[in-house]
């Protein structure tokens, strides 16, 4: 038996298909979830993919946060279900306050689309166990609201607790504080990041490398061994 990983589609989601494919490439079963459906179809974990849910109206992720599917996801994430938020999914997770801080317009006001070098800062989360702490990876990055901000006290707490999961290397593409590309919650089951690991799981496309596959093999191993 393999793990069932749900991938949520909101109106305006773009990367649900790529995310489902990445889940399958890793060897798990991808289960499409619909934003208006509270039922999570007994999945073992959930990915909130990238895109522009609800047109980014009000704030990126602000309206999705109140969708029926998120009610169940928030409840189950608090109970330990693994949740990964990629790009718009990360924005949704900060709006739900499952992850601290907030995302704002890039400091240079331009849309960014590039291959981005990252350092995986911790292997101590449900989604990064297959990496080693300090490992450098390269995955696509594409956003306009990617600037991670939080107050100094929160940033210090994240650093002290080892919850800065990914940091930008070489270039800080959006003005994120302390070069933060992604973070986790205290328990390590909820992880969010702006770059797109799901676009780097096969050599043919994306960066030409498979550096993003580790997210999906990490969760699969965790769930299968559980």
């Amino acid at each position: 038996m393999t793990a069932r990983i749900g991938v949520v589609t909101f109106p305006g989601t773009l990367d649900d298909r790529d995310t489902q494919r990445a889940v399958r490439v890793a060897g798990a079963e991808a289960v499409p979830l619909w934003h208006r459906d509270k039922d999570l179809k007994q999945v073992d974990a959930v990915v909130l993919p990238g895109g522009f849910s609800y047109g980014d109206y009000l704030r990126a992720g602000a309206i999705s946060r109140f969708s029926p599917v998120m009610e169940t996801i928030i409840e189950q994430a608090k109970g330990g279900m693994p949740v990964l938020g990629i790009c718009n999914g990360f924005q949704v997770l900060t709006e739900t306050h499952l992850l601290p801080g907030a995302m704002l317009r890039n400091n240079h006001l331009h849309f960014v689309c590039r291959d981005q070098k990252l350092r995986v800062e911790t292997d101590n989360t449900a989604w990064t166990a297959d990496y080693s702490a300090g490992q450098e990876i390269s995955v696509p990055l594409k956003n306009i609201d990617g600037r991670y901000v939080a107050d100094e006290r929160t940033l210090d707490m994240l650093e002290a607790e080892g919850r800065v999961a990914f940091r930008y290397l070489d270039v800080n593409p959006n003005g994120s504080l302390r070069d933060i590309a992604g973070i986790s919650n205290a328990a390590g089951n909820v992880v969010g990041l702006m770059p797109h690991p799901e676009h780097a799981v096969e050599p043919l496309v994306g960066t030409g490398r498979t550096d993003g596959l580790g997210f999906f093999t990490s969760i699969l191993k965790k769930l299968v061994n559980a």
Binding site: L104, R105, L109, D151, G175
Partner: peptide
């Protein structure tokens, strides 16, 4: 309004 300590690049561009 954005809190005073939050950088507002859109306001700066204006």
């Amino acid at each position: 309004m954005l809190k005073p300590e939050i950088l507002d690049p859109q306001g700066q561009a204006v």
